[in-house]
Amino acid sequence: MMLDEGFVDFDLEVNGVRIAGAMSADADATDGAATATTATTTAGEKPALLLLHGHPENHLMWHRVAPQLIEELTLVMPDLRGYGRSSRPESGDDHSAYSNRIMAADAVALMERLGHSSFVVCGHDRGARVAARMAADHPDRVRRVLLLDVAPTLRMYENTTRAFAEAYWHWFFLIQPAPMPEMLIGADAKAYIEGLMGARHAGLAPFPREVLDSYAEGLRGADRARGICEDYRASAGIDLDHDRADIAAGRLIEPELRVLWARHGVIERLFDPLSLWGEVARSVSGHVVDCGHYLPEEATAEVVAEIRSFLGSAA
C-alpha cells in the first residue's frame, strides 16, 4: 500500500544495512520511487520530522497522520531494521545488531543521507524507544522528541508484575531462544498480527485491511520474523546495559521530551510515565489520551495537534 499522493518510497543503504520506507516527495525524486540513486536529499525550506513506527508494524502506521502534515513538514518514515522492507542483518550472541543504539544510528545516518543534520522525532512503541536512545546518544541532531505510549524500558522490566507479563506477553515470548518464536510467527504471520493487535482496546477496527496485510507480509516466514525477535532480545539485554550505564554516569536525555500515553492501555494502568521519564530526561511533559495503545490510528487528531504544537515549534 502506498501513502497518498505527495509521498515516495525509498530503499537506501545506510549504516551498513538497507533501510526502506516512505518520505515526502521532492524535486530530487521525481520518478515516484526513491532509490539509492534518486533519493539524495529531501532538505529544503520545510522542517524535517522523523516518524518511527512500533511493533509489529512498519511505516504505514503513519497513514492517517502523515497526509495531514505534508504541507508543513518534510516527513521521513523508515521501516526500522528487522521490520517491513528493511534489512534483517545477522546478529551475534549479544543481539547488538538490533539494539536501540544501532537502530538510532540507522535513523541518524538516514537523515544525514537525506540532508538533515538536525530534526525532530516522533516515535510510537518500539520506535519511541529508538527515539529516546537517539535523543540520549545524538543530542546535537535531535531537537525535540514526542514519545507515544511508552515508559522507560529498564523500569518496565524492573517493575514486571503478573499483570504486566499477562498484558505484554509478547515481550517474553519474543526473547525466547531462536528459532522457536521465529518459526511460530513466520508460519502464520496474519494470526500473530491480528491476535496481538486485535486484543487491545480498539480491536482491529482502526487498521485498514491492506495495512494489516503489509504488516503480516513483513513477518511471513521464519527469516523475516527473525528481525522482530532480535529487536526484543536486544531490548531485554544490551539495551538495558546501555540504560544502566547512562544512569550510573548520571547522563540525562538533553532534548525536551513530550510523552502521550493511552488511557486504555498498560502504561496508564501499571506505570507513571511522566515520573519515570523524569528520572532519565532533563525536561519532560505530557498527558494521557482517551484511546488505546495505537495512538496514531486511534487518536489521529490529537497526535497531529501535538506534533504541530510541540515538534513544529522546534523544527
Results as ranks from 00 to 15, higher is better:
1 M>K: 08
2 M>W: 15
8 V>P: 02
8 V>D: 03
11 D>V: 04
16 G>P: 06
17 V>E: 06
17 V>H: 01
18 R>P: 02
19 I>Y: 01
20 A>M: 04
22 A>T: 10
29 A>S: 14
31 D>P: 06
35 T>P: 03
35 T>D: 09
36 A>N: 14
36 A>S: 14
40 T>I: 13
42 T>H: 09
45 E>D: 15
45 E>Y: 12
49 L>F: 07
49 L>I: 14
52 L>I: 07
54 G>P: 10
59 H>P: 02
63 H>E: 01
63 H>K: 05
64 R>H: 10
69 L>T: 05
73 L>S: 03
75 L>H: 02
78 P>E: 00
80 L>R: 02
81 R>C: 01
87 S>K: 06
89 P>R: 04
90 E>S: 12
94 D>G: 10
95 H>K: 15
96 S>P: 08
96 S>H: 11
99 S>Y: 03
101 R>Q: 14
104 A>I: 00
104 A>P: 01
106 D>F: 05
111 M>C: 07
113 R>N: 10
116 H>I: 05
117 S>K: 14
118 S>W: 08
119 F>R: 00
121 V>C: 00
121 V>R: 00
122 C>N: 05
125 D>T: 08
127 G>S: 08
128 A>P: 08
129 R>I: 08
131 A>W: 00
133 R>S: 01
134 M>H: 03
136 A>P: 08
137 D>G: 01
143 R>G: 08
144 R>V: 08
145 V>Y: 01
148 L>V: 11
153 T>A: 11
158 E>T: 13
158 E>L: 14
159 N>Y: 00
160 T>A: 12
162 R>A: 13
164 F>L: 10
165 A>S: 15
174 L>P: 07
175 I>Q: 12
180 M>F: 12
182 E>N: 13
183 M>T: 09
185 I>S: 13
192 Y>T: 12
194 E>N: 09
199 A>S: 15
202 A>H: 07
207 F>T: 00
207 F>K: 01
211 V>T: 08
213 D>W: 04
215 Y>T: 05
216 A>S: 11
221 G>Q: 09
222 A>F: 15
222 A>L: 07
226 R>P: 07
226 R>F: 12
229 C>F: 13
232 Y>D: 13
234 A>Q: 09
235 S>V: 13
236 A>L: 15
239 D>C: 15
240 L>D: 09
243 D>L: 11
244 R>Y: 04
249 A>E: 14
251 R>D: 15
251 R>Y: 14
252 L>C: 04
252 L>Q: 13
259 V>I: 15
261 W>L: 06
262 A>F: 10
263 R>S: 06
268 E>F: 01
268 E>T: 03
272 D>K: 09
272 D>N: 14
274 L>I: 15
274 L>N: 01
277 W>M: 05
278 G>C: 06
280 V>E: 06
283 S>H: 15
284 V>A: 04
287 H>N: 15
289 V>C: 12
290 D>T: 14
291 C>A: 14
291 C>H: 04
293 H>I: 05
294 Y>C: 03
294 Y>H: 07
296 P>F: 05
301 A>C: 10
304 V>C: 09
306 E>P: 08
307 I>T: 02
308 R>I: 08
309 S>I: 12
313 S>A: 12
